[in-house]
């Protein structure tokens, strides 16, 4: 059952197009990954969907939450969805928290807005939420300020605030990127536990394929403002078909096996002001033909159930050999 449906979402900043028509859906209770390098538009997609972009951005297309249109809707109706039905957490927790208010007060603010709680019930709920996200001694620490929490704990507080509105969908934008390895493992574990317990859907935005693989059931790979490949996580990770997806996997150094040279993707991401006419990835692609530089491939459903935007996808056999060389058995 589709919960959020994004159709042909386009975003431009000062006339420069950064999103060129995104189509994606999130079903109830589902965990979807959004993967790509910096500047590919993965955060902008959801900021635009929730109306969080600055005024100079031009947004067009359609974003519906169970049939209710968000793009161009009245502020009040967007606000009823944002924070309540859909909550978002960001990469840098310390800059998302208000430094001069106690964390308890900040959580209570969302509880008052979205759940209409007040007084003792509200405070008790704030303590319960902090406890749920694994803050030790929550009853006492609810009265502390953000600077009295470490980076990992601040992210837990942010998650508690996001959960305050009992959202149906949590959008996590690089939630573990700024954290240390062992803390990252804790937060990933917390997010997957919370999803199991509450049944909420999740969109996990990250450049880390490993983290996305640990959390999500489905994944969308973005490049230069477009989705280039999407599908279920297991087949995508076993046999990536878009050369860019394949390239992302190949570029990751391995933690076992022989220490080979890494296989980088040559070149850099195109400048949004000077986008290539054809496939945006063609200048960096090893398989690109003259056709690719002239004609842009559309995202089309494939026989194996995934969507792909490529004229020369990575062939099956070749990937199996690549798999032996690069990938770790699950």
């Amino acid at each position: 059952m589709t919960f959020v449906s994004i159709r042909d979402l386009k975003v431009a900043f000062d006339g420069v197009h950064v999103l060129h028509g995104i189509d994606l859906t999130v079903a109830r209770g589902e965990a979807v990954g959004l993967v790509g390098e910096s500047g590919c538009g993965k955060s902008v997609t959801w900021l635009a969907a929730l109306g969080l972009l600055p005024g100079k951005a031009t947004v067009s297309g359609s974003v519906t939450v169970e049939g209710q249109q968000l793009i161009g809707a009245a502020r009040a109706s967007v606000e009823a969805v944002r924070g309540g039905r859909i909550a978002m957490i960001f990469q840098d927790p310390s800059s998302s928290l208000n430094p001069v208010r106690t964390v308890g007060r900040q959580i209570c603010e969302s509880l008052a807005l979205h759940r209409g709680l007040d007084g003792r019930a509200r405070r008790a709920e704030a303590v319960r939420l902090l406890d749920m996200v694994g803050i030790p001694d929550a009853a006492r620490r609810v009265d502390l300020y953000p600077h009295e929490f470490s980076g990992g704990q601040c992210q837990r507080v942010m998650i508690a605030m996001a959960l305050a509105g009992e959202p149906d969908l949590l959008i996590a934008d690089e939630p573990t990127t700024a954290l240390d390895a062992t803390i990252q493992a804790q937060i990933l574990d917390l997010l997957s536990t919370l999803r199991r317990e509450t049944g909420m859907a999740m969109v996990f935005i990250s450049h880390d394929l490993g983290a996305v693989g640990a959390i999500c059931e489905r994944v969308n790979v973005m490049y230069a403002g477009r989705i280039v490949e999407s599908g279920d996580i297991a087949p995508m990770f076993e046999r990536p078909r878009h050369p860019y997806t394949q390239g992302l996997f190949d570029a990751i150094p391995r933690l076992d096996g022989t220490r080979n040279r890494l296989i980088p993707i040559t070149g850099t991401v195109p400048d949004p002001r000077r986008m290539p006419d054809g496939c945006a990835f063609a200048p960096r692609c090893t398989k690109a033909s003259a056709f690719c530089t002239d004609t842009r491939p559309d995202l089309k459903p494939q026989t194996d159930g995934r969507d792909l935007a490529c004229f020369h996808p990575v062939a099956h056999q070749q990937t199996v050999a690549g798999e032996e060389r690069r990938r770790i058995p699950a």
Partner: peptide, 24 residues
Amino acid sequence: RALVSSVPIPGKPLTGRILLKGEP
């Protein structure tokens, strides 16, 4: 051991990893 096991590897599930309590 915890550090090595905390590295998310594509295609490996979260289970069986060593999760450290607390923070440094």
